[in-house]
Design a protein around this nucleic acid. Structure first.
Lengths: 338, 338
DNA sequence: CTTAGCACTTGGGTTAGATGAGTGCTAAAA
DNA sequence: TTTTAGCACTCATCTAACCCAAGTGCTAAG
């Protein structure tokens, strides 16, 4: 009970909490001396810490962990917040990406933290088509389509000397040999077999291979959306410019970020401070959650905030949001799948 | 001579400069008292200021202005920097946008400030084609091409009940009636005539109009690249979180930013602090420059830094860069135009 | 097991004083 | 008429001394 009170108090006030104030808050009547004794025991267990020898206590990472695992009960979400969520998700969206992107926006607005969203995805997306669309006399657009509906494009100018027939042959080659394979496989073959094959039709295939590679790696990357980037300036110690910089850099490094977010197994997962492998995040906490959309796979939403965030409220919010988003996307697919 | 010395000193040290230190620096022998007299005169003219009644002097906006207009001589660019510029621009680029984007990168790296680049453009780009490319059973990609080679795409899902023929008819309508008109005109007609015309072929044209509108406004927007966003954290007063936020927000607001950058008439233009109309930038300076690429129009590069930037070095750098970039792009077009 | 009492610790805030870099002004020197 | 030395004065910055409030641990009594 005392640990719970300490976490609640500290997360909302940000000030180390002392025995007297705590005693006054507890539901039963106990003196501050009693609380002090208990606090000493909690410190012994490594659940709370002092900032200096005569200060009040703050939860340790281990303390937050215990709190999150055993004590926290999600706050019911405010009716007003539910309204915001529902109405924001309510618009007419013509592609999933818009929904996922605004989701990150909503979540960050509601929390004043930074939110991440990943669209629902099956294990390994497969190549389902590649084509070149002529736009002008020399301008061409490469389009790569995957089986979960993503399309990646890239415009470029044709190098002199390349003819339409040659390109058509190459595109046919790609489609014949690679459609249905996973992007991972295709990427591998791009290193091995493909270059030789292409040389049969193009004498200098570098240009084509670069474009195809570009568009392929783009499609293969876990694409995620970030909402409330700037909120980082609120909740992080903005005097340490270097730390801010490395955080922002991290957020742009797609692969590292995919690592951080993971594909959580559990519905809602909380990672606290140094529990995260990435050292840059040692002063932050991350709440990740999956949302499931029938046979269209799972997506991820995540919330990055300070270690001392009001977990009960945030967990409640993320919980409701994942449900609403799942509902919304199921509707979306029902509408377009038919 | 004294104003020049004050600007040089202050921009490099950041500390208000006093009479004694200044006297020591001047080429001829004068006492600090003489310098004090001259400084009083300069202050009278509004060219320099004190931070408090007994402090050294710092240049005022008016002082920087005079310095930039009459006193500054561009530093010759370090051989090393020239190497970096040349080698970075040297790679094999398949589209202009890549060159323009890396330009912003290079410029920000060399200066530790934030750089902006706009691609070369003719006055008003015109619509040169619109098409819908089918990707899957219901998935379609809208492609809009302009006469200066930009292609804007947008994938979306077809609303149920819409047939291929209907869409073909609409696309034909768009191409017949609108190709050759400027994007501005087309945007206007989208508000007026187009909806009625489209209704002839589609009973609920909202979806199509949204997509067409999206892709059109995207294409019509001045698209610029930003390099070294994070450098802002170095040179701005990073304790004022709100200011930082509004600066970053400004950088993402395309229309406001287009306003800030303008299309400078002169080769190199310096705007200092409050000279900029936008109040958010009152503590910064902006160096803008055009680069000309034959009959492909003019582009813009710009550098945002603190008011107390070493103008001589920066002006030199921007000057060389615009030349190199113009050269590089001329080459690029020569290669692909033929 | 709980509580009152007490000595002790510590960060933060306030005050006073010292320091030094700078100024403006006056009067003498060039 | 311009330059310079001299001097009184201003102000930001730094340090040291001090107090205060909030907190602790410990002991002994309830």
């Amino acid at each position: 009970m005392i640990l719970k009170a300490i976490v609640r108090d500290y997360t909302s006030s940000g000030v180390p909490v002392g025995s007297k104030a705590l005693a006054a808050q507890l539901p039963m009547h106990v003196s501050s001396a009693t609380v002090r004794n208990e606090m000493a025991a909690l410190e012994e267990l490594g659940l709370i810490n002092k900032t200096h020898s005569s200060s009040g206590r703050i939860p340790s990472v281990k303390g937050y962990r215990y709190y999150v695992d055993h004590l926290v009960q999600p706050d019911p979400v405010k009716a007003n917040d539910i309204d915001i969520i529902k109405s924001s998700l309510d618009g007419q969206f013509l592609k999933i990406d818009e929904i996922i992107e605004t989701s990150a926006q909503i979540l960050s607005n509601l929390t004043s933290y930074t939110a991440f969203t990943l669209k629902p995805e099956l294990q390994d997306s497969k190549l389902s088509g590649f084509r070149l669309v002529p736009l002008g006399k020399r301008q061409v657009m490469a389009v790569l389509v995957t089986d979960n509906g993503d399309a990646e494009t890239q415009t470029f100018n044709l190098a002199p000397g390349v003819t339409g027939e040659q390109l058509e042959a190459v595109v046919r080659l790609i489609n014949d040999q690679l459609v249905g394979k996973s992007l991972r496989e295709v990427l591998q073959e791009l290193q091995t077999k493909i270059p030789q094959e292409v040389t049969k039709y193009l004498q200098s295939p570098e240009g084509f291979l670069k474009i195809f590679g570009d568009v392929l790696t783009q499609a293969a990357q876990e694409r995620y959306y970030v909402g409330g980037r700037l909120n980082l300036l609120n909740f992080s110690d903005s005097s340490d410019v270097d730390e801010l910089k490395s955080l922002y850099t991290l957020m742009d490094r797609t692969d590292d970020m995919a690592d951080v977010l993971g594909r959580p197994s559990d519905h809602i997962q909380v990672k606290i401070g140094s529990e995260m492998t990435n050292a840059i995040l040692r002063d932050y906490s991350l709440i990740t959650a999956t949302y499931e959309v029938g046979d269209h796979g799972k997506g991820v939403i995540a919330l990055l905030g300070p270690t001392r965030m009001p977990y009960s409220r945030m967990i409640g919010l993320v919980g409701t949001f994942r449900q609403e988003l799942a509902k919304r996307l199921t509707d979306y697919y029902r509408y377009f799948d038919q």
